Simulated scan of single mutants.
Amino acid sequence: MIRFEHLSKTFQTKDGAFEALKDVSFEIEKGDIYGVIGYSGAGKSTLIRMVNALERPTSGKIFVEDKDIGSLSAKELRSLRKGIGMIFQQFNLLESKTIYDNVAIALKLNGTPKKDIEARVNELLEFVELSDKKSYYPGQLSGGQKQRVGIARALANNPSILLCDEATSALDPKTTDSILDLLKKINETLHITIVIITHEMNVIQKICNKVAVMDFGKVVETGSVIQVFSDPQSDIAKRFVGNLIHDVIPEPLVESIRRETRNSRLLRIKLENTDSTEPLLWDINRRFEVETNILYSTINVIQGIVVGIMLVLFIGSDEEIKKAERYILESNEEYKEVVLP
């Protein structure tokens, strides 16, 4: 659907050349809700603006629906852009126009007949639950309502791709959840591929199925949200996930573990589709000559899947601990040993 191949972008500034993107390569498949996360300055917004050619790469290629957008004529690019909707952090509504006219503007520019415009705008306002606000002006709406108008406007030309550039950053948590629910509804009912640029891990956790982690212009990690969330590999991903899963062992407890004179191993266990860690450990304690001490445990819901993470100190002989490890794998769960600093 969208493919980035060795994409780089350099801006010339008064202080010299600035590399906003550095050799970025990954693919977004049709039907994805794909999150791109990174701190300010990571290159996220530059990347998303490449998809509809608002920015052009210094080198590399972008393919949208198997079309190399760098090779398209102006006419072909205009046609491609009609299939790409975009919503923004600050809504970008025309304050002097009614909500109806804000949604209708893309249709008018596209030469859509007036009768069809009216039917489409009414349909979209009903979809985003703002039918009663069509004669209002943006200044009369809340932030969440303004973003719903922005979403309706982005959907006007029946796009196949929806780009969201920090679309929830200006909203409170409750309103953010309602907008994310709407985006998920758009993906599921209208079958639109969505790309979400954000610096908020809870946005990724709530609706994205895949994620790319960016840092200083590079994509440092990609994968399913469950994979990256439960076992981050890059330092930046660990920092993002750490805001939600605080599985760092406090220093006093680290010293306590080091003083343990009995044979032991510290394991980080990931469990999926479970609402409790107790049955697994209860079975292990019953079957094997080991003592288990839970140092940390958390349960999160990611893409509708319950994921549990726990740090457990196993005490016992090497043989019995290895039996317990095999039992974890036989139970279709994952674990890895944690080495203390």
Rank of each mutant, 00 (worst) to 15 (best):
M1R: 05
I2R: 00
R3W: 08
R3P: 02
S8I: 03
K9R: 13
F11N: 04
Q12R: 11
T13I: 10
T13Y: 02
G16A: 12
F18Q: 06
K22P: 04
K22H: 11
K22I: 13
D23F: 14
E29M: 11
G38F: 06
S45L: 08
I48R: 03
N52P: 09
R56Y: 14
P57F: 10
S79Q: 13
L80D: 04
L80H: 04
R81S: 06
G83W: 01
S96C: 02
D101A: 07
K108I: 15
N110D: 15
K114P: 06
D116H: 11
E123H: 06
L125Q: 01
V128A: 09
S131T: 14
Q147S: 07
L155F: 05
T168L: 07
P173I: 06
K174I: 09
I179G: 00
K184N: 12
K185V: 04
K185W: 02
V195K: 04
N202D: 13
V211C: 03
M214K: 03
T222F: 06
S224D: 13
A237Y: 02
R239L: 10
G242W: 03
H246S: 14
H246N: 15
D247N: 15
P250V: 15
P250R: 10
R258Q: 13
D275T: 08
D275V: 13
L281K: 04
W282L: 14
V290T: 09
N300L: 15
I305S: 11
V306E: 12
V312R: 03
F314G: 02
I315V: 15
I321H: 00
R326N: 13
E330R: 05
E330H: 12
E333T: 09
L340G: 01
L340R: 03
